[in-house]
C-alpha cells in the first residue's frame, strides 16, 4: 500500500465566517462522514495533522500577508493522508469530498518517502 495526500482547494473559503452555526455544523458533518467513509475501509493513514485556517504568506521583498485567502482563488483548505494501491484507487477515495460541493477541487499526490 502506498500513501497519498488528498489536498483540498476551495474557493470562497474566507466566507466561512459568514455561515450560521447550523450551516457550519452541517458542513462539518459532511466532512466527518466523508472521512469516516474512508476510515471505515481502513484506508485512512494520517489523521492527526490538520492545517489551521490561520496562516501567513511570505512573498518576495519580505511582504507578509495574513492569509493566503485574499488573492488566491482556490485556497488550500487542508489535507488527509490515505492508503491506496495506486493513484486511481486514491482518486476514487476522493470522490464525494465536500470540497467538490462548493466548486473546489481535490488534488491527489503520492507521498514519497526517502
Amino acid at each position: 500500500m502506498k500513501e497519498f495526500a488528498l489536498l483540498f482547494r476551495q474557493p470562497n473559503f474566507a466566507d466561512v465566517d459568514k455561515l450560521s452555526a447550523e450551516e457550519f455544523k452541517a458542513i462539518g458533518k459532511k466532512w466527518q462522514d466523508w472521512a469516516g467513509n474512508i476510515a471505515a475501509q481502513g484506508k485512512m493513514a494520517g489523521s492527526g495533522l490538520r492545517l489551521s485556517l490561520n496562516g501567513k504568506v511570505l512573498k518576495a521583498g519580505g511582504v507578509v500577508t495574513d492569509g493566503p485567502f485574499v488573492e488566491i482563488k482556490e485556497m488550500l483548505g487542508s489535507f488527509v493522508v490515505v492508503k491506496a494501491d495506486n493513484l486511481d484507487e486514491a482518486t476514487t477515495l476522493a470522490h464525494g469530498c465536500p470540497a467538490l460541493d462548493s466548486n473546489g477541487s481535490v488534488e491527489i499526490r503520492e507521498i514519497v518517502r526517502p
Binding site: A39, A40, G42
Partner: peptide, 22 residues
C-alpha cells in the same frame, strides 16, 4: 453515534467498528 464512530475509526480502526459505523 455516527460522528463518534467517524472519530473512533480515525484513532482506532477495526472491522467491527467499521461495521457498526456503517
Amino acid at each position: 453515534i455516527l460522528q463518534l464512530y467517524n472519530q473512533l475509526l480515525l484513532v482506532n480502526y477495526s472491522p467491527i467498528v467499521a461495521l457498526n459505523r456503517t
